[in-house]
Design a protein around this nucleic acid. Structure first.
Lengths: 163, 163
DNA sequence: TCTAAATATTTTATGTTTGTAATATCTTGC
DNA sequence: GCAAGATATTACAAACATAAAATATTTAGA
């Protein structure tokens, strides 16, 4: 199914799998480098954690609110997990839980006005930090890499849960 | 300091920072997609966590062992954290702690023979999984992206802890 | 030299996030 | 009404970050 094993002469370990491994390690290192800085700045400047910011960003894109399950799916995070993050955001009065009349099993979670205005401030700062961190990358180049990573995600997802 | 704000006519929000933001979000999504699969497979096939595998990989590259501080620096993980991971690996008899005669403050951590042989098995499977996940990417393309990410990491690191 | 301060290494403590599994509650199909 | 499925929470273990504490080493100064 794969044309991968082509260069393979005289006992040389095939370089393609090593090259792909290097790509993965670099991918990991890149996202960790950025993540570490974001985490640090969110903590010191806004006293918020990265997952809490992720939740607020997702809720900001869904103005009418979402259920916990929708939230956990969009965040790619287990449902049993979102509960705790929401708990803390509720304690901080950034989000609120609403019980919909239709389905009493679920909750609708949404940003409070305070949460929405706070988020827009943080989001602006966040965009600025990224802009600064990636300042060497122009629009065309950033778009090129974005497209390659898009393809990578599709390639990986297509092979998940298969075997 | 930045040439970033160039396209900026008629109140249009500048697209470059948005494009960089997209790049970052895609980077995050890519690494999480791969990470989730690795985590799942390591757990089901080898009953080991991803951080434990990371530690073993680092120790395998340093055959004579390392101190906890060296380990936490190479892993980009806080030192107070490595303790717990090592504790579990020691309990599983995969690594051992040695007290060096030279510096009685520190410990040398290294793989046991069992740990080393177990790691080589897992590492082979790991490389195979990555090879399969990234099968659409050829050597030249993988190398290109690797180089771009290398540059990205350097760009990000150069701006850390500065302001 | 000898004591005290500064430094280095690691662990412990606390809080947050994460995943999996088990549980409680509610809805829906029959 | 009851079984099957959906939804959210709770429980537990691992990982992670930060801060503080414990221990060992080095250095400065009298």
């Amino acid at each position: 199914m794969s044309v991968a094993t082509k260069v393979r002469e005289r006992g040389v370990p095939r370089p393609i799998s090593k090259q792909r491994l290097r790509l993965w390690l670099r991918l990991l290192r890149s996202s960790r480098a950025i993540e570490a800085q974001l985490r640090e700045r969110l903590r010191t400047k806004f006293s918020i954690t990265l997952p809490q910011f992720d939740v607020m960003a997702t809720l900001a894109r869904n103005d009418e609110g979402m259920t916990m399950t929708e939230l956990s799916r969009q965040l790619m995070v287990s449902n049993g997990n979102v509960t705790g993050i929401i708990d803390r955001l509720v304690a901080d009065k950034m989000v609120l839980r609403q019980a919909p009349a239709s389905d009493r099993r679920s909750f609708i979670v949404r940003l409070t006005p305070k949460g929405a205005s706070q988020f827009s401030v943080i989001a602006r700062a966040h965009e600025g930090w990224i802009d600064e961190m990636l300042v060497e990358f122009g629009a065309a180049e950033a778009e090129l890499i974005t497209d390659q990573l898009d393809r990578l995600v599709r390639c990986v997802r297509a092979r998940e849960a298969k075997p």
